[in-house]
């Protein structure tokens, strides 16, 4: 039986289905009986989703203006 720690160590592999058949079965069995690990996997999924949609490096207004200007210049030459 896998321990909770092993579940946590392989959380991404489980979510991305990047594991062998038997390991997957072992993880599923553990998750069936362990509410804490089920919660962890759900939270990990939410975290990944959040990271992929967050805007952690939003451009400054100045950068946006500069890019718009460049866009218009190039388009003017098309």
């Amino acid at each position: 039986m896998l321990s909770c720690k092993q579940i946590v160590e392989h959380g991404s592999d489980y979510i991305e289905k990047d594991m062998g058949f038997w390991r997957k079965v072992e993880m599923k069995l553990h998750l069936m009986i362990c509410v804490h690990c089920r919660r962890y996997v759900r939270q990990l999924k939410r975290t990944i989703n959040m990271l992929s949609r967050g805007r952690y490096y939003a451009p400054s207004e100045e950068q946006v203006e500069q890019l718009k200007q460049q866009y218009q210049e190039v388009n003017g030459k098309r």
């Binding site: 967050g54 805007r55 952690y56 490096y57 939003a58 451009p59 950068q63 946006v64 890019l67 718009k68 866009y71 218009q72 388009n75 003017g76 098309r78």
Partner: peptide
């Protein structure tokens, strides 16, 4: 975007800049 839609270009920048910067 090919037809010089500046307002749309700004939205594209704001949408994808963060991922590109990363």
């Amino acid at each position: 975007l090919r037809n010089n839609d500046v307002a749309l270009f700004e939205r594209v920048v704001k949408t994808y800049h963060s991922s590109m910067y990363a």
